[in-house]
Amino acid sequence: MQIFVKTATGKTITLEVEPSDTIENVKAKIQDKEGIPPDQQRLAFAGKQLEDGRTLSDYNIQKESTLHLALR
């Protein structure tokens, strides 16, 4: 499925993911596309910060959802 990640600079990244993917996997995909190390990424959805060990389906993130990326 496709999801979107909006960066602090307003850029939107499109990612191909599975509901079973962990947040860690998603951060690795962002690193592949943007070169941002996962340990510098903070992802949020619906106002909640997402934890590495959880999956997209844990957070009820569905196709075409938009996550927000902040850098630490």
Results as ranks from 00 to 15, higher is better:
Q40F: 06
I61N: 00
Y59T: 02
L71D: 07
Y59M: 03
E16D: 10
G10N: 07
E64N: 15
K6G: 04
K11D: 15
A70Y: 09
A44W: 13
E24M: 10
F45I: 05
V17F: 05
P37R: 06
S20D: 14
T12A: 06
L71F: 09
Q40N: 14
T14Y: 06
P37I: 07
I61L: 04
D32G: 08
K33M: 15
K6P: 01
E64H: 15
L56N: 01
E51D: 08
I61F: 02
V26N: 00
F4P: 01
L56R: 00
F45E: 02
E64Q: 12
P38F: 11
T22H: 07
A28M: 10
A44Q: 15
D52N: 10
I23D: 01
S20L: 10
D39F: 15
K33C: 04
A28T: 14
Q40L: 10
Q31L: 12
S57V: 09
A8K: 12
K33L: 15
E51A: 09
Q31T: 11
F4D: 03
A8G: 10
I36D: 03
Q2C: 05
H68G: 05
S65Q: 11
D32Y: 07
K48G: 07
I30C: 02
D32E: 14
L69N: 01
Q49Y: 06
I61Q: 01
P19K: 08
M1H: 05
Q41H: 03
P38M: 13
D52A: 11
K33E: 11
K63E: 12
D58T: 06
D52V: 05
Q40T: 13
T55I: 09
A8E: 13
D52Q: 05
E64R: 13
Q49T: 11
P37D: 07
T9P: 12
R42K: 12
L69K: 00
T12Y: 06
L69T: 02
F4M: 05
E18K: 12
I23R: 01
K11E: 06
L50Y: 01
L43E: 00
I61G: 00
P38Q: 14
E34A: 10
A8M: 09
S57D: 08
T7G: 07
E51R: 06
Q41V: 06
E18M: 09
A70V: 11
R54F: 12
F45T: 03
T14E: 11
T14V: 10
K29N: 14
L15H: 00
D52R: 04
F45K: 03
V26K: 00
Q31S: 11
A8W: 07
V5I: 13
L71T: 10
Q49F: 11
I36E: 02
T14K: 07
R42C: 06
L67G: 01
K48I: 12
L67T: 02
G47V: 02
A44K: 14
I61A: 02
I30R: 00
Q31Y: 12
L43V: 03
L67Q: 01
K48H: 09
L69S: 02
L67E: 01
A70R: 08
G53H: 08
E16C: 04
I61P: 01
E16T: 09
I61M: 03
L43T: 01
G53W: 11
T9G: 15
G53A: 10
D58E: 10
L56I: 10
A8T: 11
V17E: 01
L50D: 00
F45P: 00
L56K: 00
T22Y: 10
A8V: 13
V26I: 15
S57H: 15
E18R: 09
S65P: 02
T12C: 04
L15P: 00
L43Y: 03
P38Y: 12
L43Q: 00
E34Q: 07
T55L: 11
G53C: 05
E16R: 11
K33N: 06
K11S: 15
N60R: 10
L69R: 01
L15V: 07
K11I: 14
